[in-house]
């Protein structure tokens, strides 16, 4: 019997229970769906609307989930690990955004090398999908939620398919489908969570 291992597993179980409310699934699903629908319809404002809509899970989390799940403060080690993970995610996002900005400036100024422009035209969506998938993979590893690995694969496949369907103007379809699937799964997890965690009748304070 290794009680240290069991306690570690218990801590991991408590930590992951805070990711079984479907909020991250809803968030990711909404953003991906917005991205896909914007590509399908060419209505640029749609992505802004969907990003605003992606704030809804945050409100649901504060108003619906936390009152049913309670509050836990994790150990200083776990908090430090979470802080490092957030920092890593911020750096990765900033790097991705900067890279995108550099490409955009080069493209706008007609200063992009021909080969790079060609490559971007053919593979940008696969490249972008790969970067998003790596971020989702990192999240899956850090929070130990297995379904996030599947989401990472789904995101990469969707963007890869979008890249191949680009010539037929159907690149939005696989991304919309992936977003829809993740969103539906998020709703399923949320409903299951609400069913398993009825609002407590007792005074919380």
């Amino acid at each position: 019997m290794n009680t240290n291992l069991e306690l570690k597993e218990l801590e991991r179980k408590i930590f992951t229970s805070y990711f079984n409310d479907g909020m991250w699934d809803l968030y990711g699903g909404i953003v991906l769906l917005g991205f896909g629908l914007t590509m399908l319809t060419n209505l640029d404002y749609l992505i802004v609307a969907f990003i605003a809509l992606a704030m809804v899970p945050l409100i649901i989390r504060n108003r619906v989930v936390i009152p049913r799940l309670g509050v836990v403060k994790f150990s200083p080690e776990r908090q430090a690990k979470t802080r490092k993970s957030k920092l890593a995610a911020m750096i990765a996002l900033t790097f991705t955004a900067l890279l995108g900005m550099v490409f955009f400036i080069l493209y706008s100024a007609n200063a992009m090398p021909y080969w790079l422009e060609n490559w971007m035209h053919d593979h940008f969506l696969t490249f972008f999908g790969g970067m998003v998938a790596v971020l989702v993979l990192a999240a899956a590893f850090l929070v130990s939620v297995k379904r996030f690995y599947l989401y990472a694969i789904a995101v990469f496949i969707a963007f890869f398919l979008a890249s191949t369907l680009r010539s037929q103007d159907m690149e939005g379809i696989p991304i919309t489908v992936a977003g829809g699937l993740i969103l539906s799964w998020g709703i399923f997890i949320l409903v299951r969570f609400l069913r398993n965690h009825p609002q407590s009748q007792e005074e919380i304070t």
């Binding site: 306690l7 570690k8 218990l10 801590e11 408590i14 229970s17 009152p67 049913r68 799940l69 309670g70 509050v71 836990v72 403060k73 994790f74 150990s75 200083p76 776990r78 908090q79 965690h197 407590s200 007792e202 919380i204």
Partner: peptide
Amino acid sequence: MAHLYVIQSADFLSLQRQTGLTW
């Protein structure tokens, strides 16, 4: 005790959810 040992602190509700005990 095991639950409180592996974390810093928790409220009553979360402890109830995690341990499965009645109120």
